[in-house]
Amino acid sequence: MKIVVAIKQVRERDAQVRIDAAGKWIEEGDLQFALNESDAYALEEALQLKEKSAAADGEVIVVSAGPERVGTTIREALAKGADRAIHIDCDDLGQRDALGVAHLLAAAIKPESPDLVLTGLQSEDLGLGQTGVILAELLGLPHATLILHVEKTETGLTVKRELEEGWFQSIDLPTPAVLTIQSGGNKLRYATLMGIKRAKTKEVRRVTAAELGVDTPPVVVLEQVTLPQKQKSTQILDGTAKEAAAALVEKLKFEVRVL
């Protein structure tokens, strides 16, 4: 089975972000970057599918769009076990909307004719959650979202979707298909020294948007980025412990409505 995993490099989880001078994006100079969390789970799912499969022709290809720095994240994915990579070279990811990014990915993925395309369900920076489903549309493939587990069957796939309030849904779908993966379905693996050394000899093909023939003007334009207003409304409950506890229950029930 040939599996393509679309991954994104995002700023490190705990990074302190500052808005840039134009107010359109964050200052990137000082930041550390890492693999988007749900994409890491998508990669893990792909690697496990390949490892579980008895067929020797299994292949995992990672695709990522972004500037030069994306190379480190691609290497990490190769170190963890992906077989080769396609790096779509573009410095203007911020100016492209989800449709534009999906066009880039689709153009790179289509010639591979994969059996399965996996990607994280949303990115940690923009959190649009659309790229995967648009990608399915552009590739003309069926898709399923919020997937925690994938199993290969005789005819296609059985996937486990996460619903609200602890409910799950099991779906059968044919291949090829596109799945967007939810975090937490598997245990992630760590990068190893052997993986990094082996990754050095793995192929990373670099293509540009122009070479892919993609020139989609954005439909959605990012106007402004702002930091959320900090608001803290601490209330001190007076009285004895018993009175305070009663008051707390009251508030949790009727004001916050969590009980």
Partner: peptide
């Protein structure tokens, strides 16, 4: 064991990640 990835321990992997 670790450099070749043959050590799979939940807590250990968490520390590494």
């Amino acid at each position: 064991a670790v450099n070749t990835g043959s050590w799979a321990d939940g807590q250990g992997t968490k520390l590494f990640l």
